[in-house]
Design a protein around this nucleic acid. Structure first.
Lengths: 219, 219
DNA sequence: GTCTATATAAGGATAGAC
DNA sequence: GTCTATCCTTATATAGAC
């Protein structure tokens, strides 16, 4: 009995280690680009050992992506569910999302793989576990920010403004006007907030037209 | 001589057909997800025949992506190089980019694969042939639109606002607030232009604050 | 130009020993 | 839990006939 307890704990531990070590592999090369042999080699195991912990490659992949997301998006959820004014939460969320994407390239690329997945049912499962919670929160925030806009489209635009900047990161660096400071998440956040400031209804706070004087969104 | 001419023409024709038929395959499943067998089968050929026209899979893939882009982004380039005012060109470009992405899912997905490519030199080659021309044009447009903004970041934001909407299309449809009309490129274009209108300096035209009266960006 | 046949490697997955 | 050994399938690519 005590023995089986140890087995379970050990199994859990190895399982978690496999998940954690697989994240960068799948992030870099995607589902088809990584073999069970690759994963086993990265772990210092043989491929056969992986099948003790996971039924097949598909389930291993699903668990890896969900594991990576559960860990990494908790902070953002906290911001979105926070108490500040909608505009404050937006600023913090944009800054947080930019920081996450700048810091953790693996997370960024996993999201890209999810959106490109050619297996429909797999994509649906992942989208539900990975995007739904956060999108629901951004969607309500968008509705609070400016009820005159379409909340769904505004939510997508907010996320897209941050996300695409990093998604295009590796190609952007070869394009005209690139400077290294643009990869600084704080700089991007300021840019995005500057873009959104005048588009969203802040007239009730008397700040709707403040951009002319406010230099924070200017170069 | 006349005979060799026929051979060259035939070779060209078959080559073009292979490229055209490979676009949807690579668009759907990416480089690793498509085999030479798949392509040959789609063509009604054997894999060996492909190696008469292309040295290897890598070069076939490169040619497919470049072929698809050359054909599809010509219209957008025309808009960007057009004669209208910067703001007019922006509106037309956003509308054109939205239409292209909505109409041609293959193009959209090929762009995604390029940005995710794990082969660095391959990604660089593709980025140069696929993005540079258009980005240069959007970059100058951005500089004209509002010299106070960082033109590079503004250009990325303009493209990202349109692109991400469609990139997230398959997952977006399961998220709250989704309505089918949001997939209409004209609706998206209006949304994006509405967002940008107040952020970009149009004060010299006396229209900077016109959003309060202008209902086109409202739901 | 396209075929058949085949070399050679890499992939997912399992059986059974330890 | 992990190993060795192996099965079977699929992959890229080439040689040589037609």
């Amino acid at each position: 009995m005590g023995n089986s307890m140890i087995q379970i704990i050990t199994k859990r531990k190895t399982r978690e280690e496999i998940l954690e070590l697989s994240v960068p592999l799948f992030a870099r090369c995607g589902y088809d680009g990584v073999s069970m042999r690759d994963i086993a080699a990265a772990m210092g195991l043989t491929p056969a050992a992986l099948y003790y912990h996971f039924t097949d490659k598909e389930n291993l992949y699903l668990d890896v992506v969900m594991h990576a997301c559960r860990e990494r998006s908790a902070e953002l959820k906290g911001i979105l569910d926070g108490l500040g004014s909608p505009w404050t939460r937006l600023e913090e969320y944009v800054a947080g999302l930019a920081r996450l994407n700048a810091t953790d390239k693996d997370f960024l690329r996993l999201m890209q793989w999810v959106m490109l997945d050619s297996n429909e049912t797999r994509q649906y499962k992942l989208a539900e576990h990975v995007f739904r919670d956060q999108f629901v929160a951004v969607h309500s925030l968008a509705a609070e920010l400016d009820p005159r806009h379409d909340a769904h489209m505004l939510a997508v635009s907010i996320i897209g403004l941050v996300f695409f900047h990093f998604e295009a990161g590796t190609t952007r660096q070869f394009m005209p006007g690139h400077r290294t400071q643009q990869d600084n998440p704080a700089v991007l956040a300021q840019h995005v907030i500057g873009l959104l400031r005048n588009s969203l209804g802040k007239s009730d706070e008397g700040t709707r037209y403040r951009t002319v004087a406010d230099k924070s969104c200017l170069k």
